[in-house]
Amino acid sequence: MARGEPEINPERCKGCELCVSACPEGILAMSEGFNKQGQVYSECIAPEKCTACMSCAIICPDSAIRIWRYAG
């Protein structure tokens, strides 16, 4: 299984939670704090479980997520 990590830009996140619902591993959650727009934002709470499947990035309407995949 590939490994990777989402890189989430908290300032672009509008807190819609679509990524949270789309993540098959259930490793995204909303922040406790707020971004500069006063929104809660998406965070990866268990990056070691990320498979770089890109689901969160694909469904993100705000293009706030990039995906890194680790070789090997």
Binding site: E7, M54, W68
Partner: peptide, 17 residues
């Protein structure tokens, strides 16, 4: 943020401002 062996596999497209 990523590790040394990381490859960007999903990024915002260039045609998107």
């Amino acid at each position: 943020m990523a590790q040394d062996n990381a490859k960007l596999v999903y990024d915002r497209p260039e045609a998107l401002v």
